[in-house]
């Protein structure tokens, strides 16, 4: 079963990845990704951001994405923890972890989960810039990254 959480609190990466692998001696690989808040975006200084989500749908979307990863690759388990609320540059936003017997499957599934999360999980970022707050626009490059996994 995937470990899925949406939380305001910081993510303890070491503790979460330890929990994912504990008691799983069949896992020969653990691939992980940590997303961080940058201090600039499209040429603007970013003082912080507020993340909101769609409670109920978010959990379902993350669960569906992890189930699809399980169906596509021979992986053991998945973990997605995503933060919401107020974040500042340097803060962790998201942690994805995937375990498998061998590294190739874990690397691929981890990248797939992030690409699908970016385009399908209902989170929205509002950035604080010196000019005021603004909603982040979705990027075509994220759609293109998700399309790579089609077919």
């Amino acid at each position: 079963m995937p470990i899925l959480r949406v939380q305001e609190a910081d993510i303890d990466v070491g503790r979460e990845l330890e929990a994912l692998t504990r008691g799983r001696a069949d896992a020969g690989a653990l691939a992980s990704f940590v997303g961080l808040v940058r201090d600039t975006n499209e040429g603007h200084a970013i003082g912080g951001m507020t993340l909101e989500h769609y409670p109920g749908m978010t959990e379902k979307a993350l669960s569906d994405i992890c189930a699809e990863a399980q169906a596509r690759w021979d992986i053991i388990d998945t973990l997605v923890i995503h933060r919401v609320g107020r974040l500042v540059p340097g803060d962790r936003i998201v942690l994805v972890g995937v375990t498998s017997a061998h590294r190739g499957e874990a690397f691929a599934a981890c990248e797939f989960i992030m690409d699908y999360l970016k385009t399908r999980a209902p989170f929205w970022k509002k950035e604080a810039t010196p000019q005021g707050e603004r909603w982040v626009e979705s990027r075509e490059s994220d759609d293109a990254a998700a399309r790579r996994w089609k077919g």
Binding site: V94, M114, K118, T119, A121, P122, W124, K125, E137
Partner: peptide, 8 residues
Amino acid sequence: FFPPVTGG
């Protein structure tokens, strides 16, 4: 209804 998502 919502704008295209921007998480991650």
